[in-house]
Simulated scan of single mutants.
Amino acid sequence: MTQNVLVLGGTRFFGKILVEKLIGAGHAVTIATRGRTEDSFGDRVERIKVDRADEAALAAAAEGRYWDVVYDNICYTADEARAAIRVFDGKVGHYVLTSSLSVYGAGSADMPEERVDTASLDVPPSPVGKVPYGEGKAQAEAVFFREAPFPAAAARFPIVLGPNDYTKRLHFHVDRIKNGVSFVMPNTQACICFIYEEEAADFLKWLGETGQTGPFNAASAGKPKLRELLALIDRETGGSAIVMSEGPESEASPFGIEDDWAMDTSRAESAGFVFRSLDDWLPPLVRELAAPEA
């Protein structure tokens, strides 16, 4: 079924891939961005140039409009979630929020959604103010689940990897191992999970098209120990990881977790989503990142 959709934050990384997939599925796509990043969508999308943080401008842009699904990749706080509810009340059929593994603290490789039950989480009245990233995402989920007059889903993603990752977290490790440069990683025995950029886009699209509600963990199949990840990079680059258990913050690994930090994805699997195996995409990605530039 063709849907009329709005994507908040759709010009880079997996948001851009999501837009391409929605267009490919025949949906009518509008993207709302500040207009600072050029896109390659041409006349295949409608554009709304607006600052998400400017509620009045966003409300003016949404006036008289209706979308079957809003995909929100750039909501980080309870205050932004409440602003979205005010703006899109009566203008959306289903809301899909990009959330994060960061709603959970470290300490398990099998964290289920109910570990952090945001539907039962009380959020202080706005303005809530600045809180840590994971707490902000949890509060944003809670606001949509408890206060929104429309149904909502949240995709709890771990670290998203891919060639278009502008944070270059995997690049950090590939470059350092390839060039024999040390880095700090406090616990190489800790388990971690990832998701591929295209898979993240597929998952968001699936949430919107199937009308799922509530929180969903989403991660590729496979929860490697960090030492196993480093061994993979060693093999693919021909290098050898030089790891320090402690050291300056400037040398810290972006994957430097103290304990296991991974999720149980059985809820999404039971609902019909099939996750890729980490082994299918991670080794080729490492090879791609390690290849000499032409």
Rank of each mutant, 00 (worst) to 15 (best):
G10R: 01
G10W: 05
F14C: 04
I31G: 11
T33E: 09
R34D: 03
R36E: 09
F41M: 03
V45C: 02
R47I: 00
V50T: 07
D54Y: 03
A56I: 02
A57Q: 01
A60K: 06
A62M: 12
E63M: 01
V70Q: 07
V70D: 08
N73T: 03
C75M: 04
C75F: 05
D79A: 03
F88R: 06
F88K: 09
D89V: 00
K91Q: 10
Y95R: 05
T98L: 15
S102Y: 05
P112Q: 13
E114L: 10
A119R: 14
S120Q: 10
S120G: 11
P125G: 06
P127Y: 12
V128N: 08
V128F: 05
G129D: 10
V131P: 04
P132G: 11
E135M: 08
A138C: 13
V143R: 08
P149Q: 05
P149K: 13
A152Q: 11
A155Q: 14
R156M: 12
F157H: 04
F157V: 03
I159M: 15
I159C: 10
R169L: 09
M185P: 00
M185E: 15
Q189Y: 07
I192L: 15
F194Q: 14
I195S: 13
E197T: 12
A201Q: 05
G211Q: 09
P215D: 12
A218R: 03
S220F: 10
A221H: 11
G222R: 12
K225I: 01
K225P: 00
L226K: 11
R227F: 09
L229I: 06
L229Q: 04
L230K: 04
D234G: 06
P254I: 04
M263A: 15
D264S: 08
A268D: 12
A271E: 15
R276S: 07
L278K: 13
W281F: 15
L282N: 09
L282W: 07
P283W: 09
P283V: 04
E288A: 13
